[in-house]
Simulated scan of single mutants.
Amino acid sequence: MRILRYAAFSANPAGGNPAGVVLDATGMDTDTMLATAAEVGYSETAFAVPEAENVLNVRYFSPLVEVPFCGHATIATAVAHAERHGPAELLFRTAAGPIPVRTHREADGSMVATLTSVPPRTRPLGPELAALLAALHWHPDDLDPLLPPRVAYAGAWHPIIAARTRGRLADLDYDFDALAALMREHAWTTIDLVRRAGPTEFHARNPFPPGGIHEDPATGAAAAALGGYLRELGLVDVPATLTVHQGADMGRPGTITVSIPADPASGISVSGTAVAIEAAAAQPNP
């Protein structure tokens, strides 16, 4: 077993979201994968088992739990695969469903991966919204009235909570234990806190306490869920391409590109580059 480390959604190893990648996890059982992810210490580590040419069975583990789908670890795994086998059209078989992934090399030499999510959907937030805001130490007046709170899915469930101001988003000081308990109760993977900077530009932050992570620096699955949310609620003109900035508030800036097709049954595409992290410089997420 060889554990690779990549920073996704950044061309700088000090930016984006670090992910562990095991390109051939054949023979590894669940306990070993979980222990390995805990040792790596990143928000997720992806474990791939080759099934056929360009088809991989992929599982994702945080230091504490398995998650059904992880966007940044998918991007990292696809780039790691492409750097060893060349750009290709891949299929990742995940617990959330089949995820097509394609890779290509840009003119500057960077490798870019694009995943297409399972069809997204949303559901209302009920009485649990009050408990969520309390755990975040947010007030209802902190919310953007143009982007209603909702739970969105594109492989994993994420409440989408839009801040009225950039300052509210920048001040992330929440009750870790209370939020973790609430998220476990409702099977939420991360909380997607967003601030709309323009029609197709967003800033985002993603607490991930059920995984033992205070904050995820760049969250592809949540970005896909955000794209589906905006399309379903008619909050963006489609087709559209979003730019999501994430990680700057924690010193790991990254950029996620989200493509939203007009067809309401289509998955959301998420694109980004990834770069290898030298083992000596690898650090767990805060």
Rank of each mutant, 00 (worst) to 15 (best):
residue 183 M to S: 06
residue 114 T to R: 12
residue 184 R to S: 07
residue 201 E to A: 12
residue 137 H to D: 13
residue 204 A to Y: 00
residue 206 N to W: 01
residue 200 T to F: 10
residue 138 W to D: 05
residue 100 P to M: 02
residue 109 G to E: 04
residue 120 P to Q: 08
residue 183 M to W: 07
residue 130 A to Q: 13
residue 144 D to Y: 07
residue 186 H to Q: 08
residue 147 L to N: 01
residue 200 T to K: 09
residue 134 A to E: 04
residue 159 P to I: 01
residue 135 A to Q: 10
residue 176 F to H: 14
residue 140 P to C: 11
residue 143 L to H: 05
residue 174 Y to D: 01
residue 196 R to A: 14
residue 115 L to E: 06
residue 140 P to F: 14
residue 173 D to K: 10
residue 164 R to T: 09
residue 102 R to H: 08
residue 197 A to M: 13
residue 179 L to P: 08
residue 189 T to S: 15
residue 115 L to T: 05
residue 177 D to G: 02
residue 170 A to P: 07
residue 174 Y to R: 06
residue 103 T to K: 01
residue 132 L to S: 03
residue 185 E to K: 14
residue 123 R to I: 03
residue 196 R to S: 07
residue 131 A to H: 14
residue 171 D to N: 12
residue 162 A to E: 03
residue 189 T to H: 14
residue 95 A to K: 13
residue 136 L to I: 00
residue 172 L to P: 05
residue 98 P to H: 08
residue 195 R to H: 15
residue 180 A to K: 13
residue 157 W to R: 13
residue 206 N to L: 01
residue 181 A to I: 06
residue 150 R to G: 05
residue 199 P to M: 03
residue 101 V to K: 05
residue 144 D to R: 02
residue 108 D to P: 06
residue 118 V to L: 11
residue 204 A to S: 15
residue 207 P to N: 02
residue 112 V to N: 02
residue 155 G to S: 12
residue 191 I to Q: 04
residue 100 P to L: 06
residue 131 A to C: 06
